[in-house]
Design a protein around this nucleic acid. Sequence first.
RNA 1: UCCUGAGUAGCUCAGCUGGUUAGAGCAUCUGACUGUUAAUCAGAGGGUCGGGGGUUCAAGUCCCUCCUCAGGAGCCA
Length: 450
Amino acid sequence: MESRYKTYQYVEQLPQFVGNEVELRGWVQNKTEKGKLVFIILRDGTGITQCVIFKNNVTEEIFSNAKSLTQESSIYIKGTVRAEERAPGGFEIDVTELNVYNIAKFYPITPKEHGDAFLMEVRHLWLRSSRQHAIMRIRSSVIKAIKDFFDGNGFKQMDSPILTPSACEGTSTLFETKYFDIGSAYLSQSGQLYAEATAMALGRVYTFGPAFRAELSKTRKHLTEFWMVEPEMAFFDLNDDMDLAEDLVEYIVQYVLKNNLKELSVLERDISKLENIKRPFYRLSYDEAVDWLQKNKIPLKKKINGQDVDIVPFPWGEDFGSPQEEALMEQFDKPCIIHRYPSDVKAFYMKRDPNNSKVVLAMDMLAPEKGGEIIGGSQREDDENLLLERIRKENLPEDDYQWYLDLRRFGSVPHSGFGLGVERTVKWITGASHIREVIPFPRMIYRIYP
RNA sequence: UCCUGAGUAGCUCAGCUGGUUAGAGCAUCUGACUGUUAAUCAGAGGGUCGGGGGUUCAAGUCCCUCCUCAGGAGCCA
């Protein structure tokens, strides 16, 4: 689509301008001087290119302006594009004109190494660095892929409320805020329940928005504010749900491979590992997973009276923690879905397995290479009485769930859905070591600045 | 919240068993150089050693306390 708005020439278009004059606008990533030469690495958001200012080719004023440039100063340049092997990226601009928008003073992020704590303090500037730039472009691709996938498969997007009257799942700690005279409102931890209602109106829907958890998690895979896409499908059973989850993840990874090879290379990501992400993925029932843990003597780590205790063999009925998930995933080179968990460790809205009342029709997708849990989903309980029973058992406020029970009173149907964590997925695909790197401005316990 | 670890220049770090005026590289500023890629070379400026208290003739160093940050656990996307 041709833009109606003002367009400029960009670094990413340089190959088509070799031998011609271009005008570029951007920031000075680095500058070195060598007598009558000034080299500038110009960054314009689409890429970087080297610009050379040779004293004899420009006016005295331009040359002295070039010498006075500092890291991250913003400039306009005009010059001729030339293929140049010695330059990063293979192209170089012979500069004839230079205008300065702003001379940056004392940019704090130097080309040397920095610690994480410092970089988080200057997150608003850190985003300009090549690694963060690459991650943000991949994040944008992942979101585009998600929307394309659902839009192309007959889904309608619906938006769930962010302010909610009570907990969706009843378990997590929520952010609370005053809501006029009505009392308290809570920031949503999931749009799922509302997506279920909308699926009964539109058939197949997805909700895509932020989720908030006030838990005191302090790990490299948790944020207090994160983005989640949650499809919900009427007339889908657990198997349909798992098929859809696999298709989605395959589509996202292949989309990124098709569109972001340059970024993946900046991140030094092993492409072959991503190329391998094609259906079918692996699937294990919880029972099979527990068998494997027991055979391989993977313990359950528990705290009993303040003492760390390893329980072997792993007892049936306990939920998996990071140590179990990581051990299980070491054998796989593709994502693995674990399904049919004990009902006691899963949320109240999950449907009981008709073949085994001890388990629910739940599924989690774990990513390889320590990607961890990227998807959690289930077939939903569609029987009014069984659902009410679970709500009472978990001591949830029954009144708040009357509308949700209505969905089971007026034309209840089998339906399923899942939630995919955008940051967890981007972290896995990019190979980032910490989730805070894959969202522009991470919100974590102990950090809300900048 | 619990466990572990760390705070020394703008940044990354060194600083021994407590002992003279607190050290380096990068960044900043000045100068030199026509091919730099984290350029190099010469010079300059830059410090409440996280805060407070204590021990001592003497504390960046030892003790107490508070603060901040990082990693892990549980919870989960």
